[in-house]
């Protein structure tokens, strides 16, 4: 039984990691191409979840909702890129942090204005309900396996997009030399809008997928946002590969910490105490891991640029 539980927890860690990857990929892509640090990424995640919940409630179809979440987040991303973000590329990180912090306030309060203060309902589609047997004798939720599948597909898709397509070529060029590709006649303004909208759509997708598991409510993006930042900092800002490795590392460390630390302390003290101390340490664990990694490698594991 312990083996089964262990396997299940590893799967849980992977699934959390994949979800973080969807957030972190957009964040790190935007940083890599435009050098922009975007705190409002969590708001785009929230936009995706709200769009999915609203459309799913109106049409009864989760899949239409999922499409709507991609569209809504991409549109929201494109709009803020054109209105606000565009003016920040040449600014320092301080201005970027502040302006996107302001966007968080606007998005959160604006969403509450539109949708009210009560959480929305969103459930997983009937096709993905239920559980499947896993090695060791336990069962695992099909929907979570599907999320892992989506994460793998997105990772492969992004890899192909960047290494094989014309857009990817421009993105890579934009990462290495901004002036040069402008001089070569690439419309850099449109390129940036497209990249930003792509990152936003990924965040929206994550929001919709996770919205079915959690509660669709204002402020849902903030805890994920901070975790996603931890992920890209560990992985090396600007590196998609780093984001993937970092996300899986954070997902596994966090899940296993929550699972194993209280048991570890249980050897030393009574279960109630152990739960408290272990739980406390587990909540700080990923930050400790991050500090250690940056102590050894100040630019993260796979630094793309400084």
């Amino acid at each position: 039984m312990q083996t089964a539980l262990f396997i299940e927890q590893v799967l849980n860690g992977l699934q959390l990691g994949v979800m973080l990857f969807l957030m972190a990929a957009g964040l790190t892509l935007i940083f890599g191409v435009m050098g922009l640090i975007n705190l409002a990424h969590g708001s785009l995640y929230m936009v995706g979840a709200f769009a999915c919940a609203t459309v799913a409630a109106a049409t009864g179809s989760f899949w239409l909702g999922l499409a709507a979440s991609l569209a809504a987040a991409a549109a929201a991303g494109a709009i803020i890129e054109i209105l606000v973000i565009r003016r920040l590329y040449e600014r320092d990180h301080l201005d970027q942090v502040l302006a996107t912090f302001a966007l968080i306030l606007i998005f959160s309060e604006g969403t509450r204005w539109l949708f009210g203060s009560f959480p929305l309902y969103l459930d997983i589609p009937p096709l993905l309900r239920g559980t499947v047997p896993i090695p060791g004798g336990s069962r695992y939720q099909l929907y979570r396996l599907a999320i892992i599948g989506v994460g793998v597909a997105v990772a492969v898709g992004l890899f192909l997009l960047i290494s094989k397509t014309r857009l990817g070529m421009r993105i890579r060029a934009g990462e290495s030399d901004r002036e040069m590709i402008g001089a070569l006649g690439v419309d850099i303004r449109t390129l940036y809008t497209v990249v930003f909208a792509l990152g936003a759509a990924l965040a929206g997708l994550a929001g919709a997928l996770v919205g079915a598991l959690q509660s669709v409510q204002v402020g849902m993006g903030e805890p994920v946002l901070i975790l996603a930042f931890v992920v890209i900092v560990i992985g090396g800002i600007g590196s998609i590969k780093g984001a993937l490795v970092g996300a899986l590392l954070v997902g596994l460390v966090d899940t296993m910490g929550r699972f194993l630390l209280p048991q570890l302390f249980g050897l030393l003290m009574n279960p109630s105490q152990a739960g408290l101390v272990g739980g406390a340490l587990a909540s700080m664990l990923i930050y400790i891991v991050m500090a250690v990694i940056l102590w050894v490698r100040p630019q993260g594991l796979f630094a793309a640029r400084g």
């Binding site: 940083f31 640090i37 990180h93 942090v97 901070i226 930042f229 931890v230 890209i232 900092v233 800002i237 930050y287 991050m290 500090a291 940056l294 100040p298 630019q299 993260g300 400084g306």
Partner: peptide, 12 residues
């Protein structure tokens, strides 16, 4: 660290 890393690690 420096730049964005510094922002994020202080946050962490």
């Amino acid at each position: 660290t420096s730049g964005v890393y510094f922002i994020m690690i202080t946050l962490a």
